[in-house]
Amino acid sequence: MHDSLTKELKRILYWIKPEICFVCNRCVSGCPVAEVHSEYRPNKIVKLAYLGFIDELIQSGIIWYCTQCLKCSERCPMDVHPASVIVALRNIASKKKLPPEAWIKMAKNIYVYGRITPEMGVVSKDRKLIKREDLNLRTPVVSKELIRRLYDETLFPINLGD
């Protein structure tokens, strides 16, 4: 069972190695999320995924807490890449249309604005909003086509509407 599940995760990101984690706990010690969230343990996610509790992980939503700071992957003595295991799980979750609302919104914003939040103007000292155009600030042009390709190639198959 683990074999086929691990293979599925590896198909998404080939460099992950959940099978060789020896629970040294270095990833937990340094994880900024684990520090504030007592349920969140990167190596626990790795082992649960390896043992096949993928549905449980996806339903619990815990995989969306990760900040992708990559500290766990950087310090892991076995190159397990917990952060990438989490990305692979997020991919599976996305396929099942389960990413949290905020994520879908972010993905859509990137599609429309090329960034997570829309471009904003500047607030002046007397708290007036000055538009970008008035300051001659260029608004970057976004290639929707490129972003769509990026999503496709990174297997982020969210229905973006148009």
Binding site: R26, C27, V28, S29, G30, R75
Partner: peptide, 15 residues
């Protein structure tokens, strides 16, 4: 060592 009060932590620090 445990009897002498040395504390064993199951984990390695990240940094």
């Amino acid at each position: 060592a445990r009897e002498r009060g040395i504390i064993f932590i199951k984990g390695l620090p990240s940094e």
